[in-house]
């Protein structure tokens, strides 16, 4: 860990200012990702601005604007509190489930909603500074492209980076069409749709998101929806708990009778960002919620997958997981 100055921010405005002034400064929220990477010498900030005391952890109904009827989660609220809040459990159980599928009880008590969105890939080459990695050190090459890539991407990767994005929470947010509220140094607040928040690696894998340096995530907004009684977050992993996803699927349906009015499917563990399965969704709208249709939708989505040397299984696994998650969504969480 490199030496850094430590400042405890007391208000958002000064915190953002401090950050914006120093290109090597970082916000410290729960610290669960940042400190891990600093110990590995992957992250090397010269200044940490501890934002964990900022009063940005409310969970409250949105009473005006386009998202009226939805709810807003404070950017510095803890993952545990988001998952267990009655409003979230009642109206967005998919989100609760996704959060609870991630990490461990201790980590969720520390991790913040904003920090979770900005956690970095778990690619082992990214973590080992002795290995080449374009994301960590642009231009050094991608260790995983022709290396051990069982855990890596099957969608949207580039020759420069084949990493997957690890958050579970963000996969649910993607299915729920959330918005990320950010504030910049000039005090401006804006809403970035979650779909625009993340990016594919292209030839700039060092950029995980489209959030510029110097902006603070103040809240996450969830629009109102009718998915609450037909949703499911499925996470497939190498051990039963406390492991990152091989593949995960957030599935949510709104039906009338047995006809699907709206479908939302997002996948984790398959791409550099939460992967919205738009093709599958399109296949489902207007159709009956049957196993056969789920399968057709899954086939449509997975047809575009491009596996690497060691992860071809993710194509079949992704396919089955979409079907299973949809079935579980329809059956209220039962298989």
């Amino acid at each position: 860990m490199r030496p850094f100055t430590y400042t405890r921010a007391t208000d958002a405005t000064s915190a953002i200012k401090l950050l914006a002034e120093n290109p090597h400064a970082k916000f410290l929220a729960g610290g669960t990702n940042l400190l891990d990477l600093m110990k590995e010498d992957v992250e090397r900030p010269t200044a940490l601005i501890d934002i964990s005391d900022l009063d940005l952890n409310d969970i409250k109904p949105i009473t005006a604007g386009v998202n009226q009827g939805g709810i807003s989660l404070g950017g510095l609220g803890k993952n545990t509190d988001a998952a267990n809040h009655p409003l979230v459990r009642q109206h967005y159980p998919l989100l609760s489930q996704a959060i609870l599928a991630g990490a461990s009880g201790q980590i969720r008590n520390m991790a913040t909603n904003g920090g979770n969105l900005l956690q970095r890939t778990r690619c082992p080459y990214f973590y080992e500074v002795a290995m080449p990695c374009n994301k960590r050190e642009p231009g050094t090459g991608c260790g995983a492209r022709d290396g051990i890539n069982r855990m890596h991407a099957i969608f949207g990767w580039s020759e420069h980076c084949v990493a997957v994005y690890p958050s579970d929470l963000a996969v649910a947010l993607t299915a729920l069409d959330a918005g990320v509220i950010v504030r910049s140094a000039n005090g401006q607040q804006r809403r970035i749709p979650i779909a625009d928040f993340y990016r594919l690696p292209g030839d700039e894998p060092e950029k995980d998101t489209n959030l510029p340096h110097g902006e603070l995530i103040t809240a996450i907004e969830l629009p109102k929806n009718r998915f609450a009684n037909q949703s499911y977050y499925l996470k497939v992993r190498d051990r039963a708990s406390y492991a990152f996803a091989l593949v995960s699927v957030a599935a949510a349906l709104e039906t009338e009778g047995n006809t699907i009015k709206q479908a939302r499917i997002a996948m984790g563990g398959v791409a550099h960002k939460p992967w919205r399965a738009l093709k599958a969704e399109q296949m489902l709208v207007g159709k009956e919620a049957t196993e056969a249709n789920f399968k057709l939708a899954a086939d449509a989505e997975m047809a575009d997958a491009k596996p690497l040397t060691h992860n071809a299984f993710k194509v079949e696994l992704g396919n089955r997981s979409i079907v299973l998650a949809l079935r579980m969504a329809v059956n209220g969480g039962k298989a």
Partner: peptide, 22 residues
């Protein structure tokens, strides 16, 4: 691993990923 778990302000956290300064 969880071996460093302590209770801060009533909730369990990992002391290895907590800066003492915070």
């Amino acid at each position: 691993c969880g071996a460093c778990t302590v209770i801060v302000n009533g909730s369990r956290v990992l002391s290895c990923l907590t800066l003492a300064a915070s």
